[in-house]
Amino acid sequence: MKICFLMYPWERVSPETDTTLRMIHEAASRGHTVAITTPNSLTIRDSVAHAFCNVLRKTDKLTSNIPAFYRRAEFKRCKLPLAGFDAIIMRANPPLDTVALNFLDSVRNDTFIMNDIDGLRIANNKLYPASFSGDASRFIPATHVSKNREYLEHVLRDSPSGKMIMKPLNGFGGQGVIVIEKSARQNFRSLLDFYIGSGDQGNYVILQEYVSGAEKGDVRILMLNGEPIGAMRRVPSGDDVRSNIHAGGKEVKHQLSKEEKELCRAIGPQLVRDGLYFAGLDVINGKLIEVNVLSPGGITRINRLNRVKLQVPVIDFVENVVSAKERVIERKSTFRKVIEDAEAI
């Protein structure tokens, strides 16, 4: 199998903790051809989408030590047609590069892309949880989004809780997430001026119901093909409300509760329908706060906490999808040959 990882630059990989590196190592250990590229390396030649790729050189024996694998990795630089890959695994960091998705549009019928292009377009923002309906809607906290200062002040004033969570719509990694106390409303307009900005456009701001227990951290659940495959609890450090690892939080072992399993069963089918086969759910006290679909992380930490290798089922899934597509093509070719032979009689 030939796999292309569309990701951040290789030199920015953190070998001790990087989730993408675990996937690359697993694919390489199975003998697959592995190429890595970045959104800035996409190009078109003669109306065909290509990428300037670093193709991992194969070795007789691959070390099981992943940081050592990272340090020893050797690549060959090539310009390759994207349609020649069996699978393209999207692992670029936020924010979403919509131009990169436009390049991939032309090859979506030729190669399996994880996650799906349209799924990324609709889900790579903090509004996506609001699209869940039916039984899934009971797991979504009340959320308000606007750039209208007066409206947001009204929302805070009328909130049944003494505090709310405020964050920018286009933030990631815990950036800009703060707790707003109703008792400190005199500072709220100034904060809105900062978050929304000046000018005719401005930035959207999210005001969200404060979920009790948020001060104790959140749970990151990794979903594969609509099913949970691993989880960890992320605990804030000191007085910081944010539990994101990049914001100073730490991870601890976690077993999914009955309510969290129900949440996964309710959310999973829509993730699959939207082509979001590998996603990270951020959950607080049984409420879905965010869905991470572009480059969800956590594999390394969950592996360490539970002595598992979650990259194994991820690459298993990619192999199974590609194999199923190949069987369909082979079956179609066989039936066409039968028809051609019948016409020749």
Rank of each mutant, 00 (worst) to 15 (best):
M1C: 02
C4K: 03
L6E: 07
M7P: 00
P9T: 10
S14K: 14
S14A: 14
S14F: 10
T17L: 05
D18Q: 02
R22G: 12
S29T: 13
G31E: 08
P39T: 09
R45D: 08
D46N: 15
A51E: 00
A51G: 06
V55W: 01
L56C: 01
L56Y: 01
K61V: 12
L62P: 04
T63S: 15
N65T: 02
I66V: 15
A68K: 12
Y70F: 15
E74G: 06
F75Y: 09
C78I: 14
I88K: 04
I89A: 07
A92C: 12
A92D: 13
P95C: 11
F103Y: 15
L104K: 03
N109Q: 08
T111S: 11
T111Y: 09
F112Q: 11
N115E: 00
A123S: 14
N124S: 15
N125L: 06
P129G: 07
A130C: 06
S131Y: 13
D135S: 14
H144T: 10
S146K: 07
R149Y: 04
R149S: 13
R149G: 10
L152R: 07
E153H: 12
P160N: 10
I165N: 04
G171N: 10
Q175I: 10
Q175F: 13
V177E: 03
V177C: 03
E181R: 15
Q186H: 14
F194I: 13
G199W: 00
Q201I: 13
N203P: 06
Y204H: 14
V205A: 04
E215S: 10
E215D: 12
N225G: 06
E227K: 15
P228Q: 02
S237K: 05
V241W: 14
S243C: 04
E251R: 12
L256Q: 01
E259C: 08
E260T: 02
K261W: 10
C264N: 00
C264D: 00
C264H: 01
C264G: 00
L271Q: 00
V272D: 00
A279K: 04
I284N: 02
L288M: 05
G298W: 01
T300H: 01
R301Y: 05
N303P: 06
R307E: 14
V308W: 00
L310K: 02
P313T: 09
I315Q: 06
D316P: 06
S323K: 14
E326C: 07
E326V: 04
S333W: 11
R336Q: 11
K337W: 13
I339R: 15
I339G: 08
E340L: 13
I345P: 01
